[in-house]
Write a protein that binds this DNA or RNA. Structure first.
Lengths: 259, 259
DNA sequence: CATAATGTTGCGTCATGGGCAACAGTTTTT
DNA sequence: AAAAACTGTTGCCCATGACGCAACATTATG
């Protein structure tokens, strides 16, 4: 009875199926009724009705009459509330804005979500070049400063289950050995911040620090990123220390990110 | 049998209820099971189970064990896909980034959603002050440049149903007379772009232009905004004309925003 | 032009969603 | 401090809504 897509759930079946459809659309972009039905192993009339429910609330939209479906703008509105809620609880925007102002580079907050890094808030830096939108994007753990921070303090067993089996080489300096990655994490724990220097993308460098909950567990990461030449000029160690200090201010706030 | 919250739907009832819960959380922030049940006129065990389904997919999160619920970060990830999809189809980011670079102010794209303006994409300007996050936010139609653009070309009947009964005065220069607002829309149609000069917020000015579909219907608006003194220095008419021209480049692309 | 494929919808069936009751824990009131 | 009230959760049973089937209209393909 369980569906193999994105894990089984004992929740309300039709609701769970509808939410699985959203995840399929997030991964595939534009998908038809028949493909969704095949993926979820349900009848196409069931898929059509579930999509109609999502359509009526603007969570999906149809490209043309009887055409393929994609995610809809209703999600943007709901997600905007998430970011506003995060700020209103933790007051993180004040700190991320101050850091973006001080360094001129983009500042993000990210969490671990399904064993990968998800960017949940962003304040853009003043520089124009590479003014990338990270919000809502997902990146790997092994080659990002945020990923290193989010896993460095995990219990070893938990960490092993989070890390991928094979470290994909995405840039010239990607760490691909698990032994070397563990050494890197030891350095992160020692320093209190992480650096990813042309590891996810050539010419791109990031520095991240941990945001902790009241049990001292790392629940989010704050990260400054930008082109390698500019980041190097800022002084990565100096930025790291300052970031760690600011992250600590955020760590003191109650009920911030999902614990 | 229909529920009065956010209109009735003939869609899959349990899915529609779950999505209504998301909308309640978007509006109220943090809400308990009992309140949700009361709002939707369902049993609290039903509400609890629907929330459990949303929880299992990270679309909501619970503040503490047995505590209130709020929207979850799974929405941020899904919404990130919406923005990426919009860009990959319309290529809007190239144009919005170029405009942000040229003027140094924040550029957004917005659509009409439930008779209000919803910001669906944003590129921040290079200035630090008022680096506000519009993405996912909802603002009124009557006192925003984007709102004026989104309704100016609507058939009169449609426009009347979109506009609020009473124009709330939100800033020193808010237009509160419907007669004057219609005159303003005539100016917008003549110029091809709209200006909101300290109408939604004192000290804040925006210029917007229409993005059209293949039937020449206005389906989105592109807007530049910033502090009134800086925007005035840029020359509002000049910015407006340039914006209209750039918006036209976007209007040519197929299957952009929801039609 | 014929065939195949897709998405939609009416209908009947039954598997599931939902209400009830009971419970555990927390908060409020006395 | 104790009692009462409230909240959120869960086992259970059954009424109903979700679902699959068949048929249809439309579009795409050979």
């Amino acid at each position: 009875m369980g569906n193999s897509f994105s894990g089984e759930s004992s929740a309300v079946q039709s609701v769970d199926r509808a939410l699985q459809i959203l995840e399929i659309l997030a991964q595939e972009g534009e998908v038809g009724v028949t493909d969704i039905a095949a993926t979820l192993n349900i009848h196409k009339s069931t898929a059509s009705r579930l999509l109609a429910a999502l359509l009526s609330r603007n969570l999906v939209e149809q490209l043309s009459d009887r055409g393929k479906y994609r995610l809809g703008i209703g999600l943007v509105r709901l997600a905007g509330t998430v970011s506003s809620n995060l700020d209103s609880v933790s007051g993180s925007r004040e700190i991320t804005r101050a850091l973006a102002d001080q360094y001129g580079e983009t500042v993000n907050i990210a969490v671990l979500n399904e064993n990968r890094v998800l960017y949940v808030d962003q304040v853009a830096g003043s520089h124009i070049m590479t003014m990338r939108s990270w919000l809502g994007q997902i990146v790997p753990v092994h080659c990002t400063a945020t990923g290193k921070v989010l896993v460095a303090w995990l219990p070893e067993k938990t960490r092993k289950s989070v890390l991928p089996n094979k470290f994909e080489k995405l840039a010239s300096r990607t760490i691909t050995s698990i032994t070397q990655f563990e050494k890197e994490l030891a350095t992160v724990r020692e320093r209190g911040y992480a650096i990813a220097d042309e590891e996810m993308e050539d010419g791109f460098t990031a520095v991240a620090a941990p945001i902790r909950n009241s049990h001292q567990e790392v629940i989010a990461a704050i990260v400054i990123s930008g082109p390698t030449n500019r980041m190097t000029k800022l002084g990565l160690a100096s930025v790291g220390k300052n970031l760690a200090k600011n992250a600590q201010l955020l760590s003191g706030n109650p009920t911030s990110w999902q614990e």
